[in-house]
Design a protein around this nucleic acid. Sequence first.
DNA 1: CAGTGGTCTAGACCACATG
DNA 2: ATGTGGTCTAGACCACTGT
Lengths: 236, 236
Amino acid sequence: MLKYQQIADEIEQYINQHDLKQGDKLPVLEQLMRQYAVSKSTITKALELLERKGVIFQLRGSGIFVRRHNRPGYMSLFSTQGFKRNLGDRVLTSDVLDLSIMKPDETVSQNLGISTEADVYHIERIRYVDGELFCVEESFYVKEIVPYLNREIVTDSIFDYIQSALGITIGFSDMYMQVGRLQEKEARLLQLNIGDPTLRIESIFHLSNGTPFDYSRITYHYEHSQFVIQANGPYL
Amino acid sequence: MLKYQQIADEIEQYINQHDLKQGDKLPVLEQLMRQYAVSKSTITKALELLERKGVIFQLRGSGIFVRRHNRPGYMSLFSTQGFKRNLGDRVLTSDVLDLSIMKPDETVSQNLGISTEADVYHIERIRYVDGELFCVEESFYVKEIVPYLNREIVTDSIFDYIQSALGITIGFSDMYMQVGRLQEKEARLLQLNIGDPTLRIESIFHLSNGTPFDYSRITYHYEHSQFVIQANGPYL
DNA sequence: CAGTGGTCTAGACCACATG
DNA sequence: ATGTGGTCTAGACCACTGT
């Protein structure tokens, strides 16, 4: 485990355990350096992670402070998007509707950057948060990269599996978001009505070397999906 | 101007000017160090910015590569959210419906962390992208922090004004997002029908010292609003 | 002006990807 | 095995906040 990650985790844990509030002051840099017996840059790097994650903010000339938004019930947009962070104490479960191998259509092959002759896994799931209908997801995995999947894996976390079992490292993703109306099939699965509003997110996930390996479309239940995004500074 | 920002900007410019594609390789670290005559960490910091911004990705043992998503017409979610980045070549304009000073109601005072007796500016705008109806925005600014606004400022960019004229530095924001149906007033302003789907985002903007100064609610025209979010690694 | 975080350097060593 | 990015250090100096 990297030092700066370790330290970041410990500081975050400390904040949670002591239930610190927005604006509470953390020890100054120099003390953190002594406390963890590392150099300044290592602490800086750890704090930078926490800053990106929305856990703290730093103010030059003043100190390091806790940042915490105050709306329970809002999930981080990214927590349900592969890169699972804190879904907190909420439980994510799935019903698998389909798991099969197929040839991709034009759209899918283009998004994955593969030929329409290559094999892909097709997965369709309904997902629940704390037992509540949350979204339907249709996803396509490049079989050459993810050679094997079964119902058990797919019911659980696919990403956990391909990272731990296959040793694949996920790099980054592009997410495309838009609002629209439910189609017949989606409405049925989400137990809503045709034409009801919905949020749709298409995502393309890439390996750390830039190769796309997963294209997925998520349709959210508009009553049970609200998200928080914590943004930073002008440059993001 | 900070060295690493300068370098980041130049590299980004280079990528755009040469119209590099996803996967194109950039010079290796050592060459960049020589080219810009700075230390390794400075280059690293510059590249880190670009990585966060979704412009490049780095692969240890291999190189630095261009990252570029391939869907024109999708705006970065953050470009319309105060922290303006590249709205690209698209033009953002506004009609001001209201600009007044008032006392905040319970919700607003709570989100801004002020008393219901404190003054706030109330602003209501319709916003257009390339002349197309984009969203309606209602926002509240703490008058003690932003003591003066006029119609001209508000028609243009409020954030530009308070940063350059008032010397205020903006720190971070919490955005709360959900999907719903249009109410009567929103529908009229967006020239849509009551009950049509919409994306709503509430944002709380904080100064760099953590004080909230702006609470705003945006209601998007669902047909003209589609966003891209470029996410990074497991820790984000 | 004292205290605090931010930038930048030079260099040692490590971990990974690729041929 | 080689080349490449990533981690970490120790230290100088800078820039901002708040008293």
